[in-house]
Design a protein around this nucleic acid. Structure first.
Lengths: 204, 204
DNA sequence: ATATTTGCTAACCATATGGTTAAACCATCT
DNA sequence: AGATGGTTTAACCATATGGTTAGCAAATAT
């Protein structure tokens, strides 16, 4: 019996859980707080999701499945490496700006429990580097790009895009910026990061 | 009355606390586990450090004061930007390889409690960008470097060096590498990251 | 030698927390 | 109307957890 109201409750729980888990992590999150945010009784959490662990996994999976497609953009379309980098950098920073807790949440929880990613790997749509590797190799051979391994390039792209969100408090302290200035700094990166990468790898 | 034995106990606690806190974080750490690892009674933790919070702060401060001097290397010596980047990249990756939990610990806990860094900012030896900024400006004006803001360059350097340690489980999954292969990949970055950055910013 | 301070432990405490239960509620079907 | 079955709640439970206390042990001072 899936009335509207039922679906709402389940979704409300997931939403509240998303907020709490992403901000406080598995260990810091409290079932009571999730229930309060969802505006329901704590017992409902268990009615719908059985346990904290399962509720957490539901949140983690939706978070991860939000992030993965973004990566596939750069891996699986047919444009040139340069275009891919420009597109990805701009899109990704825009995307994360709307979900600023996402990368940190995923990275943190994977460090807490590295085996967790094995469950994700089986999912359809898990990022796969094969096409990207071939493409980098081809463009290097053609002399479009300077020699670089696809893995290292991929890591660099991720690092330059994701790190400013993950290490935000640290960087804000080092660079002496407030929220507004940091937002601007991130905004600038939408094009600067791509330029930075392409400057480095493109043959002239 | 600081006998050897006393100092040993206090240090043993700090050491055990370091291990537990760095792996499990403030929320995931248990006082009992710290006591067990230190081989002493739980009450001793409170005898020496009063509360979990204070013990945690002691750990955090030592961790942070281990990391900060590394950053000052790149900021405050007199070599050229290029040399700084080469030195820093190699040294930093070597250093972190010996303390792999450090960056993630600091980043995670700062996200949990951003105000925490204010306490650090007052410490002597807190990284300061002023000299680095001037130097970048000078080298850009001289035409040695392509135009880039010192802040963005600094963020890029940090990102490329630190991110592979922070996001290790994620990257291992994406690139399909095991522990050994990942270690090699990191090893290669000691020079490749510097090349990557310098390629990007140096005028030819 | 004795008193005193310091280091340490076992037992205990109050509270927080994830989870359960029994009963109430409410919509739908007969 | 009354039975049925999914949904929701208040009250409850067992355990984990940070923290405290009273007293012992050992070193230091007198």
């Amino acid at each position: 019996m899936k009335t509207n109201k039922d679906e709402n409750t389940e979704e409300q729980i997931l939403n509240a859980a998303k907020n709490v888990f992403q901000v406080k992590g598995m260990d810091g999150a409290r079932m009571q707080e999730i229930a309060d945010k969802a505006g329901i009784n704590k017992a409902m959490l268990h009615y719908y999701y059985r346990s904290k662990q399962l509720l957490f996994e539901a949140v983690f999976k939706t978070a991860f499945s939000l992030l993965a497609p973004q990566l596939n953009t750069i891996l699986n379309d047919d444009s040139s490496i340069e275009d891919k980098i420009r597109n990805f950098t701009s899109n990704y920073i825009t995307f994360i700006s709307k979900h600023p807790y996402l990368p940190n949440f995923i990275i943190q929880e994977l460090n807490r429990n590295p085996d967790f990613i094995l469950k994700m790997k089986n999912n359809l749509g898990f990022p796969n580097l094969e096409k990207f590797k071939k493409q980098v190799k081809t463009e290097v051979e053609k002399g479009i790009l300077k020699p670089i391994s696809a893995e290292q390039l991929f890591i660099n792209i991720l690092a330059l895009n994701i790190f400013p969100f993950v290490a935000r408090p640290l960087i804000m302290a080092f660079t002496n910026t407030n929220d507004k200035a940091y937002k601007q700094l991130i905004e600038n990166r939408k094009t600067e990061v791509a330029d930075f990468i392409i400057n480095s790898i493109k043959n002239t």
